[in-house]
Simulated assay, not measured.
Amino acid sequence: MRVLCLVDGPVIPPDRWMWNHLPEEAQQDEVDFLWASPADRFKNWGKFLSYYPQYINLGWRAWKACQKRHYDVIVAWEAKTGFPLGALRSLAGVHSPPFVIFCFSFRGIATSFPQISSWVMRGVHHITVVSPEEIEFYSRILHIPRSHITFCQFGWHDLCQNAEPLAHNNFIFAFGRSYRDYQTFLEAVDGLPIEVIVNTRRFAIRGLKVPANVHINEMMPEKEYARLLVSAKFVVTPLLDTPHAAGESSIVQIMAAGKAIVATRTHSTSYYVEDGITGILVPPKEPRAMREACLYLLSHPEECKAMGAAARRRYEEQFTSEHTARCQYAVLQKMVMMQAES
């Protein structure tokens, strides 16, 4: 089949994005890529300065590409990449070829305009989500039929496969910027008898008191980040409790690195983290519970290592790029087949 893919970063041959992880028969597909490369330097409405314009431009380029060439299906990675094209298709009343958004998440500025977002989704045939609970949520909020939503677990390649551990490994690590509850986290680790390293954007911790044992890095190159991840005692993912998935990409990376996880219990983390087996889940907004979980892992190093090993096994069994690619590709095949039969 002939596919147009809209992604949020460069895909340069011989890289074929999802197709890198698919069986031989899928390699016959003709796949074109268009991408945006926005600078994520601001939050909330500040994203209109340098972030959202990139995706609006991507939607327009995709629209023009579809006028010049026939595609059997269009794919967008996440809602931010697909919304502009969905709006153009809804405005023009265009419903062919099928349009699918992978790893859909309704968040950010779009949540301020649910009726407009629901209208935009008329230009989209199908979405995949990364937690089972989101099917009901998006069906209710955006009026998407449940049959148009597929759960595909989030998978990712092993970023730490060739990472060289640091000589210094006596620290707890946390990272990420979106929907992080660093206020609870910083309260939880304040005064712990161990160094804490955090990789995030400065805006994610603006106005928060940073304890003396906490070191804040800006987001860093993947190679340096991977070395921190494989060297940490364990990793904490503090999250806000949202109705949509959040933090799953971080958790999958932690699992791949073979590290025990302390995470906020949310809709998505309850699926990805096996509480007491691959990590410890704690209630939202409870720094005391998060602190107790950290102290438990520090005082039980062998159990901490066992949780990390279990996390790695779970990653290999369910959350590799190959697992996710197969699920998503099955959705594309179904859309193309349904279009041919209609």
Rank of each mutant, 00 (worst) to 15 (best):
S249T: 15
I116P: 00
L88A: 08
K43Y: 15
V214G: 04
P10R: 05
K334P: 01
V120M: 15
G9L: 10
L239G: 02
T128E: 06
I12Q: 05
Y271D: 02
G46S: 06
W63I: 01
P301T: 07
T278L: 11
L228E: 02
K68D: 05
I280N: 04
Y179G: 00
D158Y: 12
M338H: 08
S250T: 12
Y182R: 00
D40V: 09
F102S: 00
Y179V: 01
E30F: 09
L295T: 02
Y182F: 15
P114M: 07
V252Y: 05
V331A: 03
G176M: 07
A87G: 02
V130K: 03
K43L: 11
P221H: 10
S250N: 13
G108N: 05
S90M: 13
P238I: 09
F175P: 00
W17T: 01
Q318P: 00
R2M: 06
A110I: 09
V273T: 06
S270F: 08
G108R: 02
P84C: 10
L85P: 03
L85H: 03
L85F: 09
A309L: 14
V7R: 04
W156A: 09
G46I: 10
S299C: 10
V124H: 08
L208W: 12
K47P: 04
S147V: 07
Y138I: 02
C327W: 07
L239P: 03
V210Y: 09
L281R: 03
V214F: 15
R177H: 15
C5Y: 15
V336Q: 08
W77I: 05
